[in-house]
């Protein structure tokens, strides 16, 4: 097992190299002149040329790429073209916000999606099955920004029961330890902050989690339906086991395998969706960070952040594969 993990980690190197080439090329294909966006419209051609030279923008791409990778290997993600802030520091601060939001959305999607899928399968063709699966069909095609704005309008503007933006109310104090606010508030025993952070998470979490939730619910249902027809489920019933035990242990553990694959893939989708969600809910994470950087043509930020996001995605996929082993003993990693 350990050998397998190490081998997979080594195999990540070429993957990440590919990803870095891809992000680098993408960023340099985006139209727009970084020098111009830094100096403004009024800059003269000589000023621009000077800056380009200084930033290495006139070097061949291969040299630029080499510099980019060289720095990254030293943990240097470069600095913002606009504000000159150290990108690594910025990301270290913003990443926990994104991860907290993504994990929260994923847990929401998994708990509700799996439960709905199981119930829909066990009570096939019941009103619950019909309603939840129609809902799920609707859910996968819902645009996040529309859903987010509708939620803000209903829950924050009209009903005033949830905060429209941010991670924490300005009146709430929280000692930041890990920058994961839920975790920090538990660590410092600050229940007021926990509640506030939780309420702030609800809307963006739901907006972000709706599509994966719908996908997971549909996948769970079809997978459960197939498993419930298997011989070993009949065996479990003939052994005199309780129905709940048969459904939630014997059937679900088998039915979960294809769902796990979907969850791994949906995680990538969540990281992408975070850009939209964070922008709508002014969530101070790397999604919003990269969005603003794109608007400002700050290619340094875009390049580094996308590389980080891609790395996380690849790691999540590795984690999914390892979890697979736990759920399916038939899989051999040799």
């Amino acid at each position: 097992m350990l050998k397998y993990i190490i081998r997979r980690l080594v195999m990540l190197i070429p993957v990440l190299l590919g990803v870095s080439i891809l992000t680098f090329s993408l960023v340099h294909l985006i139209p727009g002149d970084p020098a111009k966006s830094m100096l403004g419209e009024k800059a003269t051609e000589t000023q621009l040329e000077l800056l380009r030279e200084e930033m290495g923008l006139n070097d061949p791409y291969i040299v630029q790429y080499g510099n980019f990778i060289g720095k990254i290997l030293q943990g240097d993600l470069g600095e913002s073209i606009q504000s000159k802030e150290d990108i690594a520091v910025e990301i270290a601060q913003k990443l926990p916000a994104t991860i907290e939001l993504t994990i929260f959305a994923m847990i929401l999607a998994m708990v509700i999606g799996i439960l709905a899928g199981v119930i829909a399968a066990v009570k096939q063709y019941s009103w619950f099955d019909n309603v939840s699966m129609t809902g799920a069909l609707f859910g996968v095609s819902l645009p996040i920004f529309w859903l987010g704005l509708m939620m803000i309008w209903v829950f924050a503007v009209e009903l005033k029961i949830l905060p429209p933006s941010g991670r924490l109310a300005s009146t709430v104090e929280l000692e930041t330890i890990t920058n994961f606010y839920l975790l920090d508030s538990i660590l410092s025993g600050n229940w007021g902050a926990f509640k506030d952070a939780f309420f702030h998470l609800l809307m963006p979490g739901l907006a972000l989690g709706t599509i994966p939730m719908a996908v997971i619910a549909r996948m769970t249902r079809s997978s459960m339906l197939e498993v419930m027809g298997q011989d070993y489920i009949r065996t479990a019933a003939a052994k005199g086991l309780k129905k709940q035990l048969i459904i939630f242990q014997h059937a679900l553990k088998n039915a979960f395998l294809p769902v796990l694959t979907i969850i791994g893939l949906q995680f990538g989708f969540l990281l992408g969706g975070a850009v939209l969600t964070e922008t709508i809910f002014s969530w101070p994470g790397i999604g919003r960070y990269v969005y603003q950087a794109v608007l400002a043509r700050d290619y340094q930020i875009v390049q580094s952040t996308i590389l980080i996001i891609a790395t996380i995605f690849v790691l999540v996929n590795l984690l999914t594969d390892i979890l697979y082993k736990y759920f399916d003993p038939r899989i051999k990693y040799e």
């Binding site: 011989d231 070993y232 009949r234 003939a238 553990k253 088998n254 759920f327 399916d328």
Partner: peptide, 12 residues
């Protein structure tokens, strides 16, 4: 049951 290959739960 008839088929021992499928009558036991593979994940337990």
């Amino acid at each position: 049951f008839q088929d021992p290959m499928t009558s036991l739960n593979p994940v337990f």
